[in-house]
Simulated assay, not measured.
Amino acid sequence: MNANVRQTYLGASVSTASPQRLLVMLYQRLVLDLQRGRDAQEAGQREEANGHLLHAQDIVMELRISLRTDAWSGAPALASLYDWMYTQLVLANTRCDAAMTEHVLALAEQLCDTWRQAALQAAG
């Protein structure tokens, strides 16, 4: 697919997505970045791992910043979880520790699945 066509398609997908779908898309990208970062760490490709993990850190920070902690009773606990994930990603990145990245990845996959199910319930 042509790069311009792909960018146009992705832009349209994001601009027309519901807030629930946007959240799921963000989590899906987080999982992808963590998988790629872990794989690069395991292959000894520190620079490549760094790029993926920095992007993952940005996503976690965005999730944390956009979370309204007064919106529901579980929000403060989720905020704490995001803080922990961010700290672990910084450490995993600076130490080039694939096991730490894997641990955050497992949690991100669970959260992604949970939000995906919630979005499906909200839509249906």
Rank of each mutant, 00 (worst) to 15 (best):
T16D: 06
V14P: 12
H103M: 11
E109D: 01
Y86D: 01
T69L: 05
H55Y: 12
L63E: 05
L63M: 03
A92S: 13
L91C: 07
L67K: 05
D39F: 10
S18E: 11
A40R: 05
Q117W: 09
L105G: 08
M61P: 07
S15G: 06
A56L: 11
D58H: 11
A3I: 08
M25C: 08
M61D: 15
Q121D: 01
S73T: 02
Y86L: 01
Q110K: 12
T16C: 15
S15M: 04
R6Y: 09
R64S: 05
L22C: 13
D39C: 12
L23Y: 06
E42F: 04
L34T: 04
D39H: 13
L26R: 13
L107C: 07
I65L: 10
A40W: 07
G51S: 11
S13A: 08
E42R: 15
D70N: 06
A12W: 06
Q57P: 04
Q35S: 12
R116H: 05
L54M: 09
E62A: 12
A75Y: 01
A40D: 14
G11H: 07
A98L: 05
R64F: 12
Q57A: 08
T101F: 02
A17K: 04
L91I: 08
L81P: 02
E102I: 04
V5Q: 13
T87A: 15
A98F: 01
T87K: 09
N93A: 09
Q57D: 06
A99S: 09
N2A: 02
Q45N: 12
W115I: 14
L120W: 05
P76M: 07
R38E: 08
M100E: 15
T69I: 03
A99P: 02
A43R: 10
M61Y: 12
A71G: 01
